[in-house]
Design a protein around this nucleic acid. Structure first.
Lengths: 341, 341
DNA sequence: ACTTGGCACTCAACGGGCCTGAGTGCCAAG
DNA sequence: CTTGGCACTCAGGCCCGTTGAGTGCCAAGT
């Protein structure tokens, strides 16, 4: 069928272009791929593909280059995620196995991903709100100052200092600590506000303002941490392809990467689903990433995603099958590591 | 005197070159600066400066460009640190004033510095070993697992999980916590090992192994944190000057910046002294920074430096007086903010 | 002993003209 | 629907002359 061959041609164009970084012509195509037809036939197909907006010519006498729409079709219909090679798998395991503590896991993961894909890797810290309380510790700093430390089952620690409206003695603190912990330990952070709603009423009126202040701070910690953390690695990889990639300047991309909020929104939109998500060029919401593609996926300690996301940012002209394979594999392994730790 | 005018000429060359980003010739020099002599005279001086290695010609029919040695002389002898303007000072104050918590202070500082200098800013987290213990908290996770949380007076929190060789009851933990805290609270971390040396002997032989395990973990926390953290901002500024700066490619610079260890070593060499430290081009120990200059200084809560360092990385052709002024000012303000918090 | 104007020289950068070759679109025949 | 043939386009490389900024040197001036 003609339709089918046209898709073959598009696939071949994407593969060659990703490989050579040069516009690909009809003659080169038939030489590199066993398409079984002549260059002239290919030209007809290419003209059709161009009419439909999947490919374009940089200038009249040049070959074709895929458009964002072309890459989209390629990713959706024409390619399969490429599984990692044996050595690569072993490298991942070895690299992540030695990790101690959450920070170490995240740092190793992002470096690993950058190295595997030779692109910029982005890893979001496991979301606070989706994990559960392991312990809430309170430390008296003075009569009216209290440090609150929240420890989650993903190993994350958040602390805040509370200025109390009144004095709170050592005994009061111990009492409060015990009560709060028995209420919320083991529960997901998302349930904490509900669980603690009635707590102030259990206390005598004179300490109640203090209790309220502490609870307010705890809740604030939960809310503010929606402002999640991300870590990057491999930014130097942006400077590889130089002029060709990223429409000449990597500056807007670097700027976008520095605004972590942008990256978090990007991840947030996918809802930390475990499915691979690919956002190509113009599809990206942020201006600075219009010349880039993002491959991301959710990951989590339970092995079915949901905690947070990770991914890579690279030129639209990237090796999608390989990159997607690496992202998926790393997400799985890090989920596994988190589940064990 | 001739010697003096030669230095004037060098200063003028550096200033013009930083300004225009183009090799500067004798004619342009006399026009832009009131040197009171003719271009021909300047040419003689320039020839001498070139013989002495302070300036060089990119090619025969071009103007002169300062060498690393030229910049060095300029920084050491020919320039004065430029104080910030009123609005800039106010911007710093306003920007840092709203900070809550150590993370926030550090993040705001690094962003601020990047914005002020329009270069890459690097801020090291206040060193753990140089700050003092505010509190050591211990949380029983199970009969044989204990979480140790160390809180410093710079607001930093470090936590570790200890696997105990035996069982430790709630009372034992409370006892141990009280003893350790009375021993080390308020003391610099560097003194902690000495202070705790004799502690195990104060306990009954049956719990002693547990005590030893906890202490070992605390000490380990102190040691491992020599592995300090740094944060970056403004890497997009590297992509401004494009081809001219950094000998064409910013890649090695980006790579160097990603190796935080490199940056820490850089800072470590200056010993966190409050004096401004400038490292120019080839003077840099790390290969990737041979085309860059680093302006850094120590900062600290006591206002006289010593806790950690911060600075900026930029092209050797940078505005040294302005950058040095910004770095110094930011270091002072952040020290102030830390002292207050 | 410096300074300066004059002068010849060098050479990167720029632009124009030419050629080449890769690649295309179209068409008529198979 | 495929294919070979053919005319056409145009970026990129190359050669070359021009331009102009900038230099080094020298002899005259103060």
């Amino acid at each position: 069928m003609i339709e089918e061959r046209k898709l073959d041609v598009l696939r071949a164009i994407v593969e060659d272009y990703v490989d050579t970084h040069e516009p690909v012509g009809s003659k080169a195509l038939v030489e590199r791929h066993r398409l079984g037809v002549s260059p002239a036939t290919i030209r007809n197909d290419m003209a059709a593909l161009e009419d439909e907006g999947y490919i374009t010519q940089p200038h009249t006498s040049a070959g074709r280059v895929p458009t964002d729409k072309g890459y989209r079709l390629f990713v959706d219909k024409l390619s399969t995620v490429k599984p990692l090679s044996g050595p690569e798998r072993r490298a991942i395991e070895g690299f992540l196995a030695g990790a101690v503590g959450l920070d170490d896991v995240v740092n190793r993961t992002v470096r690993l991903l950058a190295q595997l894909t030779r692109q910029v890797a982005v890893v979001q810290y496991p979301s606070l709100t989706r994990s559960a309380v392991r312990h809430l510790e309170m430390v008296r700093l003075s009569d009216t100052r209290l440090m609150v430390v929240l420890i989650t089952d993903t190993g994350r620690v958040e602390q805040r200092v509370v200025e109390l409206p009144g004095v709170l003695g050592e005994d009061d603190v111990a009492d409060l600590r015990a009560r709060i912990n028995s209420l919320i330990t083991g529960h997901p952070l998302s349930e904490v506000p509900t669980l603690m709603a009635d707590l102030p009423e259990a206390f005598a009126p004179d300490v109640r303002p203090n209790v309220t202040a502490v609870l307010a701070t705890v809740l604030e910690t939960l809310v503010e941490q929606v402002d999640e953390r991300v870590v990057l690695a491999g930014t130097a990889n942006l400077a590889r392809g130089t002029a060709l990639d990223f429409a000449g300047s990597i500056r807007p991309v670097l700027e976008a990467l520095e605004e972590h909020v942008v990256l978090l929104r990007l991840f947030g939109e996918t809802g930390h689903q475990q499915a691979l998500h690919v956002s190509i060029g113009q599809e990206n919401p942020h201006e600075g990433l219009r010349t880039a593609s993002v491959v991301s996926t959710g990951y989590g300690a339970d092995g079915i995603g949901g905690l947070a996301s990770l991914g890579v940012v690279g030129p639209t002209r990237m090796d999608y099958p390989g990159t997607m394979g690496a992202v998926r594999a790393v997400a799985r392994y890090v989920g596994q590591v988190l589940a064990e730790g």
